[in-house]
Amino acid sequence: MTDTPTALLRVSDLHAYYGESHILHGVNFEVQEGELLCLVGRNGAGKTTTLKSIMGMIPQRTGSIVYAGNETIRLSSHRIARLGISFCPEERGIFASLTVSENMLLPPVIHPGGMDLDEIYELFPNLRERARSQGTKLSGGEQQMLAIGRILRTGTKLLLLDEPTEGLAPVLIQQIGASIRALKSKGYTILLVEQNFRFAERVADRFCVMEHGRIVDTIPVEELEGRRAELHEHLGV
């Protein structure tokens, strides 16, 4: 018998709606334990909606989302989070009425074995000095680090990261890249949404291409060289 990797997350025939508009039209993919899967696609393809559906933040959703053996399609989002999934939103979601350290301590610890504050500050040293500032007084890059940092305490295994490099300067993108690789080596499973393809190909194991609310192609990183033209066509670059 060979070790077949087990899917930590399996999304099947996922449909999602905002009121009358039907956004996801039967999304299917799996994320293996310890894998970094990158969801790519043009603006408006439905990447954020997919992450929010997994997180239970889109009330109108059908199909099946199984995480670690648990069907979550009917659960409300705090129950889903408690199963061990964390979300870092595209707009970062730093709270203005909380200090940096209150933002950091906000997500409750869900399983033991998350990173402790010192480890997180080691990953993102800028945050330590700013602990008492108002959360939204941080720079864009620091806010992004805070948004990632605060979910690492919780002991969750699956991280949903929505465009962590959006709007950041190149040196900050490198720093985020280094921390994502560090997280991978710690055994986190990551579902990453990313428009910055040059960044994504340095961290991802596999790409799923999304178009008009469907996954239209899956490309493992080993096949990337041969299929680059195909991918660029999907993304319109």
Binding site: M57, S76, H78, S97
Partner: peptide
């Protein structure tokens, strides 16, 4: 800490709930 949940939920209840807090 409880107060920080309240303040955060005032700003963005959906995200606070997605962190595992029973906002309702």
């Amino acid at each position: 800490r409880l107060g920080s949940y309240l303040r955060a939920a005032t700003e963005n209840p959906a995200l606070v709930q997605a962190f595992g807090i029973n906002v309702p």
